[in-house]
Amino acid sequence: MTVGTTAVAPAAPAPSEHPPPRRQRGRSTRSRYPLWFLLPGGGLLVLLFVVPTATSFYFSLTRWTLFDSTFIGLENYATFFQDPQLFGSFVHTLVYAVITSVGKVLSGLALAILLNGRIIARGYLRAVVFFPVLVSAVGIGITFKVLFDPFDGLINRVLGIVGIDGPGWLTNPDLALTSVAMVDIWKGVGVSTLIFMAGLVAIPRDYYESAHIDGATDWQRFRFITLPLVGPATMTVVILNVISGLRSFELIWTMTGGGPGFTSDVLASVIYKKYQAGLYGLSTAGNVVMFVVVAAITIPLYRWFRRREVAQ
């Protein structure tokens, strides 16, 4: 090291006297941050993300056994949108993503405001709210299946004590999807809460103080200071939750398996069922539908948030 330093030292003032030509500087930057650093990670992404995604468009147009595929045009897509069961899964996916995203945004913001305020046992509360994030979806799904049991489940027992005849949370076709979505909100709200808390901390305290001096009510302070300034955090929370809501599988699969009937089937569970049935082409068509839905929702959503931010 000493040798290196002494060797370089006399040369160091040189650039200020004769600024090196641009090209040379570029080359030194290039060698300092070599492109091959991108290669291992980028190679994996190409191999296990780009190739499957690109080929999925072709395979979704075939009848496929993994070893050979027969081109059948748009037949898989026709099946997808004509079969009421499959089309239902498409609708359920959207409903599920909307319920979970709205639920996590509202409850996450409320919890973040509560936890950012002066409140007793804040550390405990934060830990408790975040804890379900760490438990596996399968474990939580099984637990809530038992808690939701129409006769012996804890929830309906408690409702029974206050004289309410609790519904069949997971056995009622009109309710199953919503019940799973509620558990999803419960499990995931910790992440949204954390992001909102970081967003709230970034709002300068003086704003609230001067609003207080001007006599603003709690609601006015929330409406005209908190809500506009927590925008970037809201964008993150909404987009994260929409993406994960559209993809969700594990909780639904453990709690209802898509039932009763097909009333809580979503795209991800249909992809799995068709895969199990050996209908690989149809399963892959389901995947393509999912990409398109995810892209068609998240990209405009992102642009919309960005435009609002700029407008402010």
């Binding site: 993300f49 799995y272 399963s283 892959t284 995947n287 892209a295």
Partner: peptide, 14 residues
């Protein structure tokens, strides 16, 4: 890759 969910059966194929 962050946004788009991976395609299952084509990944098995790869």
């Amino acid at each position: 890759a962050l946004i788009v969910p991976s395609a299952v059966v084509p990944t098995i194929w790869v």
